[in-house]
Structures are given as structure tokens and as C-alpha cells.
Design a protein around this nucleic acid. Structure first.
Lengths: 252, 252
DNA sequence: TGTACATCAGTGAACGCGCGTTCACTGATGTAC
DNA sequence: TGTACATCAGTGAACGCGCGTTCACTGATGTAC
């Protein structure tokens, strides 16, 4: 998020990142650096393609190296381990989804219902176009793989956007001492709100999280085959769900 | 479903099943048959335990055989392939979940809201108690594994119960020529209704499927770690969601 | 009840495969003087 | 601008591992007479 600021602060940012061990060179100048950047991208691309067959678990360094026509050991010049490659795919996936959704929302206008409609269809559209990446992000976790903290921020981007939308539509009324949820839940809502920097109404939070789980639950059902033979295709049902959600979110 | 009828027709049923290659002997009498039944159960149990580590993909015949102290080739006397073992785990999983939910609903009474409350909490409770089985049933499909038709009926049991509840609460009004959804969606609703043998109202169908996806989406999020650091524990949020769903389902 | 034969459970070795990762190496590219 | 050295990319072989499945075999259990 705030990518325009990051661009302006690129130099400082990269300096900090390198200090943390994340090599992300600003601009490759030497031939070596250019070649390195290109091959890294090619490896990631080949891995993404591999994902399409065998899923996240079938993703093997050797297969990726084979597809690129290089020795399997060469990949280790670019990624220290298989897990690092997976992490990269996860980060890229979250960013790809967030980019897709944000641009859809931005062209949809500033009205809440329109933004929601755009967001929901963008999530589903992206997931259907990239089913294995969706599974990597929101499906069964890869056994033995522990997501590093680097994945948190990209994963949060889309949620932040949604919570902002919630708050814009139904902010908590001023001077609200009384809450409508249990103290434990209120504290969790507050934490999320503070992290994002907004404060939606309690009811909006409940409806919002419910609608959010329904959205991802729907897409998961559709991709993982949970309603084969019933809602195939699921387009009309999905639209009905989005409409229902819209009523819940915006017609208080 | 219709297990009482099946029980009455057990003899015929098993005869038919055997004709289809599904060996399910009625009552083991000889020592060999008893031993076979026991060992089959032990293999399934060991496989279920294996599931807990490594997930569905990590499940290997060799590991199961190792845990039981037998040669890996011996397992082939009981299951013709690894996929057959997985199928068995899936079928057992669906049945286990359905049993758990049905008994919870049956003790909850006949009122819709009570039944829904029991069902929702039963689904989540079962999933938290059996996270890897949940992942096997509703998570990312196992790559290379194609679920045979045998898994359909067990998978349907719990859905049938839910749709029956929907219909009992909000049946389609008699003489209903006019539908409130697109023809395509109406046809899909009709197909589901006819399969189950009931006819819920169109709006009930929309709300019901939405609530259903929200329920499984919620549990998926919780088990797969999608809202680590936010709703941990998620008990209060879940209860709020169940309440919201109850209002949508029963307060028309 | 006893014997001869058929059926079945379980063994251990083997086939052929793929995997992640390491390591010593070569040759090319970059850099300091 | 030219040379000497350091850095890095990529190779191919190897280690050690696990997997699903097959197969000829042995010994125990069941069955027909």
C-alpha cells in the first residue's frame, strides 16, 4: 500500500530492506545484475506455471530447474531453499490479488455498494483465473511450510481496503461508550480498526467479517469442487450472494 | 441418507454393492474374516493418525504400514491403492461430521433457530477437533486424486439436513408461479430441492447458501490461519456470526 | 474326524522414480590498481 | 588502457531419503470329501 510514497522513498527503503537481508536492488546496472534480475523473474514465472500442475506441494525446485533447462543446483544461486521460493510465490500472489482488486475498486467509483460489487467480483475473477494461487493463499496450508512474517503485509492489503470501505459506510458513532458486542470481541474489533486506522461500527464489523468469510467460502467451494453437480456454473448464485451482502452492508 | 431404509434393505444392498466390487461383508464369522475386519479398521485408524502430521498429501502407505509394524506390501491386501485409502478416509470423514451434526441437531429440539445454532457449532466443533480431516474434505483437493462417486452420498448428508431445515422454516408458498431469481438459478434451486425432496423459498435458498458458505469459510479461515493475530480466539466472532445468520434465516 | 487341496495374509527384496540440498569445479564477469 | 585478483553463475555428480507398486515366496487358515 501507499506505493507512491514507497516509490519516492525507494532509495532509503531499499537501504533499510537490505539491512534486513531482503535483497531488492534498486536498479540493476551491471550485466550481472540485469541477468540476475531476469533469471530470478524467470524462475518465479516457471514456478508459478508449475503450480498449475500438482499444486503447491508438487512444486519442486528440480522441476522448475528442468523447465528452465538449468541444473537444479543453479536455482540455489537465486533462492536459498524451496520454502523461500514458495514464500515468494505467496507474496506475489497476495500482491497480484490486491492489485487486481484495488484497480477494480478504483474504477468502480466511490460509492460503497459499487466498490463492494467490484471487490467481490474481482476476488472471484482473480481466483478463477489463478485457482492454484488462490489455493496457495487461502487453501490448506502447505505441510511443513511456515509462512514468514514477510507474507503478512501483502496478505493484509486487501483486508485493509475492505475495512476502510466498511468504516466509510458505517463509522462508529461519536461518543460511543456503549458497545453492542462482548468486551473480548470489542477489543478485537478495536485492534483491527486501529491497525487499519479507522473505526467501523460494531454491527458493520460483524456483518463485514461474515460477508468476507462468505465471499472466500464461496470461492473456495467453487474452486475445490464442493458443489459440483449443484451450482455449476455458480455465476447467478454468486451475484445473488453479492446482492444480499450489499443489502446487509449498506442498507442499515 | 435414508439410513433406516438402507438398514431394512441391507441384504439386497450388500448384494448389489458386491456386484459393483465394493466388498462389505455383513457379519464376519470365520477367524480370518474377523482378523480382516479388525486389521482394516486398524489401518484406517493409523492412516487417520498419520493425517495429523503432514496432511493428506503426506499420507503414505509406507508410513501407515510402518506405524502398524507390518510390511508395506501387506497393506495391499486391504486397500488396492493409496487412493482407495484416501477415499475411505474421506467417506469416513463426511460420515463422522454428519453423525456429529445430526446428533447435535437432534438433541437441540425441533425449532429452526435451535437447530441452526446446534448445526453451526457442531460443524466448527468437529472441524477444530479434526482439523486435518476438515482440510481433506473442504480444503485444497489432493493433487492427482480424483474423488470417486462413492464420496458423493456421504458428502451430501449434512447438506440435506440443512436444506430440510431451510424448507421447514421457509417453504415456497403454494401456487408460486412467480420466482424471485433468474431462471437459471431457479432451475438449480429446483434441482437441489427435488434431490432433497423439499422446496424452500427462493430467498431462503439464497440466504441459506450464503450462510452455508460463510460457515465453512469461517472455519476454513480459522483452521488455515487466515486471521492469525486478529480474531484469536475466534469464539466470540463466531457466535456473533451464528446469531446474524439466525436472524437472516428465521426472521423473515 | 481326518486328510488333501485351495485360499488367503503377510514377507522381504526389488524396480524405478523423484525429491532437497551440498560440494568441488569451471569459466565468465566485475573491480582495484 | 591493461593487468591481477576477487566475485559470482552455473555444472554435474553425489548423498540420503522416501515413495507406490509388483512379485515370488512361506506359512497359516478354511473347505470339500
Amino acid at each position: 500500500m501507499l506505493s507512491f510514497v514507497v516509490t519516492a522513498l525507494d532509495f532509503l527503503h531499499n537501504g533499510l530492506m537490505e539491512a534486513h537481508g531482503e535483497a531488492k536492488p534498486a536498479a540493476p546496472r551491471t550485466a550481472r545484475e540485469r541477468a540476475r534480475a531476469e533469471l530470478t523473474a524467470e524462475i518465479v514465472e516457471a514456478a508459478r506455471a508449475r503450480l498449475a500442475e500438482g499444486g503447491a506441494i508438487g512444486l519442486s525446485l528440480r522441476a522448475v530447474a528442468r523447465d528452465l533447462g538449468m541444473a537444479s543446483s543453479a536455482v540455489y544461486r537465486y533462492f536459498p531453499s524451496r520454502d523461500a521460493l514458495i514464500t515468494r510465490l505467496i507474496v506475489d500472489g497476495y500482491n497480484s490479488l490486491a492489485d487486481h482488486c484495488e484497480s477494480a475498486m478504483n474504477t468502480a467509483g466511490t460509492q460503497g455498494p459499487q466498490q463492494w460489487d467490484a471487490l467481490a467480483h474481482a476476488v472471484r475473477g482473480w481466483a478463477k483465473a489463478n485457482p492454484h494461487e488462490f489455493a496457495l493463499l487461502y487453501g490448506t496450508p502447505v505441510p511443513g511450510y511456515a509462512a514468514p512474517p514477510d507474507t503478512v503485509d501483502p496478505a493484509t492489503r486487501i483486508v485493509v481496503r475492505f475495512v476502510q470501505m466498511l468504516a466509510a459506510s458505517r463509522p462508529r458513532s461519536a461518543g460511543s461508550a456503549e458497545r453492542t458486542v462482548t468486551p473480548e470481541l470489542a477489543a478485537q474489533f478495536d485492534f483491527v480498526g486501529e491497525t487499519v486506522g479507522v473505526a467501523p461500527d460494531d454491527e458493520a464489523f460483524i456483518v463485514g467479517t461474515s460477508v468476507w468469510t462468505a465471499l472466500f467460502g464461496f470461492v473456495g467451494f467453487e474452486l475445490f469442487g464442493s458443489w459440483n453437480n449443484t451450482f455449476e456454473p455458480a455465476d447467478h448464485l454468486f451475484s445473488a450472494h453479492v446482492e444480499l451482502a450489499s443489502r446487509l452492508l449498506f442498507e442499515v
